[in-house]
Design a binder for these strands. Structure first.
Lengths: 148, 148
DNA sequence: TTATATGCAAACTTTTTGCACGCCC
DNA sequence: GGGCGTGCAAAAAGTTTGCATATAA
C-alpha cells in the first residue's frame, strides 16, 4: 500500500509547490487509513504531533488542489458529512442503510466487473474510489413494503 | 413509466397524510423527468400552473419524508449541487469526466449484476437510483499519466 | 526575488430548528 | 377536535472570497 510519501514524491516530481500545510494534510490523510472530514483532518494534525491548527480555508484549498491532482477522493456520506481520503489507500466502499443507518464495508473487488464494462463499452476510466451505496439492510428489509 | 399519480396512490394507501405542498412537490418531480434541485422544484411549482411559492423549509421536509418512504432519490452532482428525483422515473446514471466535465448517461441495467451480488452476499437491497461516477472519459484518457 | 500559498474576517449558500398558526383526517 | 404539517425567522453548518502577509523555489 502506498503512503503519504509516495504522494509527496509525486507532487515534487510534478513540480507542484509543497508547503507545510499541504504536507500536514497529506500526512494526516495518509496516517489514518480512514475517510476524514475537514474537522477530522484539523484535529488529527493538531493532536498527532504538530500543535498547529490549520484554518478551514487552507484545508479546503489543499483538498481541492489534491482532488485536481487526482490524489484524493471526496464522498458525501450523508449524515456524517463529506469525507476525504488519499486515493492511494486501499479502496473500499460502504453500504448505508437508509432505515437504521448501519454501514457495511465493501471490498473494492466488487466493482471490478463494473469498471471493466465501463472501460469496454464507453472508454471511460471510472474512478470509483469510495462509493456510498444507500439502501435497506437485511434486518430492516423484513418489514418494508414498496409502491406498486 | 410511473407518474406522480401512482406515488400519490401509494402514499394514500399507506395512510400518510397528503397535503397541498406535498402534492405539489410530487407533481413537480413527476412532470419533469429530470433531477431537480431544491430551487428547481420551487421554481417549477411557481411557474408551472400554481403561483404558490413553497418555503425552503417545507421543500426540505417533504423531500426528507419522500426519501424515508423510498420514493425519492438524492444525488450529489458536485458543481450542480444536490438533486432529487422520483424513484419511479426510469433509473439512469451518469459518468462525469473529471477533466473535461463531459457527462455520459448510463442505462440502469448496467447495475443489475452489482445489485444482485449485494443482495446475495450481504442481504442488502441497494437503492442505486441515480448514481454519479467520476473518472476520465475516452478523450481525456489520451494524455494523462498517474502517480506510481 | 517573485509568484504563490496562507490566515483572518466576512460573506454566502445550504440546511436545520423553534414556535405559533392552520389544515387534513 | 387533535395531531401533524407549514411558514416565518433565526440559527447553525458548510464553503467560498478578498486582501494583507508569509513562504517555497
Amino acid at each position: 500500500m502506498k503512503t503519504s510519501d509516495s504522494v509527496i514524491d509525486y507532487i515534487q516530481a510534478k513540480g507542484e509547490r509543497l508547503t507545510v500545510p499541504r504536507r500536514l494534510v497529506i500526512e494526516a490523510l495518509g496516517q489514518s487509513h480512514e475517510h476524514l472530514t475537514i474537522g477530522n483532518i484539523q484535529q488529527h494534525i493538531q493532536e498527532d504531533h504538530h500543535d498547529h491548527l490549520l484554518s478551514d480555508t487552507t484545508v479546503y484549498r489543499v483538498l481541492q488542489w489534491l482532488k485536481e491532482l487526482g490524489l484524493v477522493s471526496q464522498t458525501d456520506m450523508g449524515q456524517t458529512g463529506t469525507v476525504y481520503a488519499l486515493m492511494s489507500n486501499p479502496h473500499h466502499h460502504h453500504l448505508i442503510c437508509l432505515t437504521c443507518g448501519a454501514t457495511i464495508t465493501l471490498e473494492d473487488e466488487l466493482f471490478t466487473p463494473l469498471r471493466g464494462q465501463l472501460l469496454r463499452d464507453y472508454g471511460f476510466e471510472a474512478r470509483i474510489d469510495h462509493m456510498a451505496i444507500y439502501g435497506q439492510c437485511r434486518n430492516c428489509l423484513n418489514r418494508k413494503s414498496k409502491p406498486e
